[in-house]
Design a protein around this nucleic acid. Structure first.
Lengths: 338, 338
DNA sequence: GTGAAAGCGCTAACAA
DNA sequence: TTGTTAGCGCTTTCAC
């Protein structure tokens, strides 16, 4: 019941292993026949037997001798995180359709873990690597580049690295779009509830909110809540905002969104009459809620698609690019025109 | 900058490759020295040079010749699903500490996809496979067993398969515990809101709820909502329950839990005075909510730990076992004694 | 068009 | 205690 080998195939056909290997590795022509200097007839016979035995070449052996390894490495800080796993899922989907296997690893935001994983991947001689880097560890990534292994960075940038592909999100741009959307719908007293965290994406959103408000002659105001007391503070902020007559709230993290929403319901506030709200990140709750919620989607799966495609191009020898993905503003009933 | 090979190491040391290989593959003794018939001194010299060059053996080559491959395959229906990814995460964590690489795949509940992935894994000659099987495809799994590759089933059972390990959740047992907990706290009029789905875990919970109620001389009642109109129906069910004077609600799926909770808040019902509630599955919302929510944890990470450990034992030649994991009832303020 | 032969980096009999 | 030899399954010159 063990898999048949190329050698056995060759023997049964009465040809050399070389011949079989060549047929198998030739690029396919438009009409589906292999593009190599093998007689059409022999090639057909080979393919038929391959089919009959459902022969699958051993990637191990192929890789060893120097061929493609059909293996990719993917590292995220935490595969259990919804956004990262959505990205990873998409990569796996596309890659396995192309015959690649995926090795996943979670760095857990620990540089040593990331280093370990990279070493592992290099040891396995993967064809390419996609990684959401954790802070404070570019040496291992540099090593990847030095070894000539195509590398694509996702979501977080490391500017010092050269020759790597990047798929990054335009957080500032999306927040600008949010504010403009609210302004266009007649909202003026727009506030943000944000969290005191050292995360670039959040800082970008805060900064962009302030800039856009000021550029439109309005005064920005951010409630900054501490992570540890986030729920209580968020709820307090919502009550304050309601009392003050704030017209719209932007909540740039999903936990803030959820707690703000809960407090609005708790306070009996009507959305969007008493308070409009823009949430962040993807949740099935946004579209089942009534009214539906206007939110900024991270497009995690699109990021996966783009990263994989870019990696493919790089594996074919094309130059590394930087792709900016604009997060998508999904309009809902929580910010209708007033 | 490319990795050094065992052969080069051997040449630099003036010994044979065999010698080096033996040192490297020997099990470690308590004092950290390799347990083989190599002179302590030579062994030390080998290890020193390995260290100096940070040599990592090529798993490809090792695997090819018949040694361990240090590679595991993990298949879940959807790695983007929180529960599965938590399990996968834990497996990866433990496995990579032992030097294994993990190949992940999502079957997307599609038998053909599962078959493909399994073939891939067999082709890569993984040392072991952990899978949450999708319905309707046991042939590929049988193939795994036939090839002598240790296989562990997670969460879903396929009784016909022999010689496989299993880590299953005791859904009926946990629901029994839920009902008993409520009874013990003085609740009598206990109802369940469930969804009309063909999923074993849900059926188990419904059955167990009914049985336990009847066994205690109480009348069970289940609101069955359709998946497609789940939100509206769940909310309606909550309103009905409040009107009828129901004392406690069990919601055996996370979406039902969330919508029931939202409707309770919407209706201004006090928890647990007007209605106690037991939610299901893990969510950060349960512990940040006030009052905190009593819920049944799936223990996805524990399942991962147990599955990995079991697989390890099987890879060492031990017999396959079946492990039942009792889901954990986490007590919160939503079901306090009345 | 096709095949012989030499490896890729490693492990495992079998000798010494 | 150590080395010799022969592969694992495949790709790749180079020769025919």
């Amino acid at each position: 019941m063990v898999n048949i080998t190329l050698k056995e195939l060759a023997r049964e056909l009465g040809v050399s292993t070389t011949l079989v290997s060549r047929v198998l590795n030739a690029p396919l022509r438009a009409d589906g026949t292999p593009d190599c200097d093998i007689s059409r007839d022999t090639a057909r016979r080979v393919l038929e037997l391959v089919d009959k035995y459902n022969y699958k070449p051993s990637r191990m052996a192929a890789g060893l001798r120097g061929g493609k390894r059909y293996m990719l490495g993917v590292i995220t800080p935490d595969i259990a995180n919804a956004s990262f796993s959505a990205t990873g899922r998409r990569i796996e989907e596309l890659a396995s359709a192309d015959g690649y296997s995926i090795m996943f690893g979670s760095s857990d935001e620990r540089p040593d873990r990331q280093l370990e994983l990279i070493d592992h991947f290099i040891g396995q001689k993967v064809d390419g690597i996609i990684v959401t880097p954790c802070a404070g560890e570019d040496r291992s990534l540099q090593k990847v580049v030095d070894q000539g292994i195509p590398l694509v960075l996702i979501n977080r940038n490391i500017p010092s690295l050269e020759g790597v592909g990047r798929v990054l999100q335009d957080y500032a741009g999306s927040t600008r779009a949010v504010v403009k959307h609210l302004l266009g719908n007649g909202y003026r007293r727009i506030e943000m509830i944000s969290e005191n965290m050292d995360v670039l994406s959040l800082k970008d959103r805060e900064r962009s909110y302030c800039e856009t408000m000021i550029a439109n002659g309005l005064e920005p105001h951010i409630y900054k809540v501490e992570s540890i007391t986030q729920e209580i503070e968020t709820r307090q902020a919502v009550r304050d905002a309601l009392k003050k007559g704030t017209e719209a709230l932007i909540t740039p993290r999903i936990v803030l969104s959820i707690n703000a929403l809960l407090e609005l319901m708790n306070a009996g506030a009507r959305i969007p009459e008493d308070m409009a709200i823009v949430c962040h990140d993807d949740s099935p709750a946004w579209i089942t809620h009534s009214p539906t919620i206007t939110y900024v989607s991270q497009r995690s799966d699109d990021v996966g698609t783009l990263a994989y495609r870019l990696l493919c191009r790089m594996m074919k020898g094309e130059l590394a690019e930087q792709i900016m993905v604009p997060p998508r503003l999904v309009l809902g009933g929580s910010t209708v025109k007033r």
